[in-house]
């Protein structure tokens, strides 16, 4: 049970500006690449149809194909990122590509939940901040970016942008208590007590009839 120990504090890296609202998880990882029983190797298929031509060469204009951003690990996106299918293959593909944090205007809920469960901070900033960060990175891809979880600030070069995380979630990332399985399994007695008070378990448990 090693995952529960990992504390997520400052994430430093370069940015990858990925413009566009409503980018759905079918774009992030097309369904045909989900025909596998592990998440291994998904990184190379991230945004496949946006990046690869008919001959399977990464020739299409896309930030993940852009040599200027090839060392990037902090994805910068617009609004409603990750909408559509619940597939965790999407954030898993991004993580395996090398993304360690995502900064955007807003995130689809299931996608954000998957990021949380994986320990990838999905940080929201207002539109004008995102636009400024994208322009900064597009102008100078080497601009260092750091997401400071403890003081809730993204620093981009000389600029600092404040973001909000719930105190509890921030604490969870910092202390490594973001691993929900361990957190919840610790409450085994309460789980059983909750089950026992549910009418459909205690009072009229369904019986299979053949």
């Amino acid at each position: 049970m090693q995952e529960q120990q990992i504390s997520i504090q400052d994430i430093e890296g370069r940015g990858i500006p990925l413009r566009g609202n409503d980018i759905d998880t079918d774009q992030i990882i097309p369904a045909r690449f989900m025909k596998r029983v592990t998440f291994d190797g998904l990184g190379e298929f991230a945004f496949y149809d946006h990046r690869y031509d008919d001959e399977g060469k990464p020739t299409k204009p896309h930030p993940l194909n852009d040599r200027r951003f090839k060392d990037g690990s902090i994805l910068i996106v617009n609004s409603n990122f990750g909408c559509g299918s619940s597939r965790e293959h999407a954030p898993q593909a991004l993580a395996r590509y090398g993304v360690r944090a995502i900064i955007g205007e807003s995130f689809a809920e299931i996608f954000a939940g998957n990021c949380t469960a994986m320990g990838i901070p999905a940080i929201s900033l207002p539109h004008h901040d995102i636009e400024e960060i994208m322009q900064t990175v597009e102008h100078d891809p080497a601009t260092p970016i750091t997401t400071h979880i403890s003081d809730q600030v993204v620093s981009v070069g000389e600029h600092r942008y404040h973001f909000d995380l719930s105190p509890a979630y921030r604490n969870a990332l910092l202390t490594g208590a973001w691993d929900s399985t361990s957190l919840m399994l610790a409450n085994l007695e309460e789980i059983k007590a909750t089950a026992a008070r549910l009418p459909y378990i205690s009072s009229f448990e369904s019986v299979e009839v053949s």
């Binding site: 029983v37 592990t38 597939r87 293959h89 509890a168 309460e190």
Partner: peptide, 29 residues
Amino acid sequence: DLHKVKRLESGQDQLFIGLHLIHEVTSPQ
């Protein structure tokens, strides 16, 4: 409220799930 087990340190609620359905694509991992 009926399904809430407790408030977690992460600030989220721990919610009991009465029925869990799984299929071949998202469960093997």
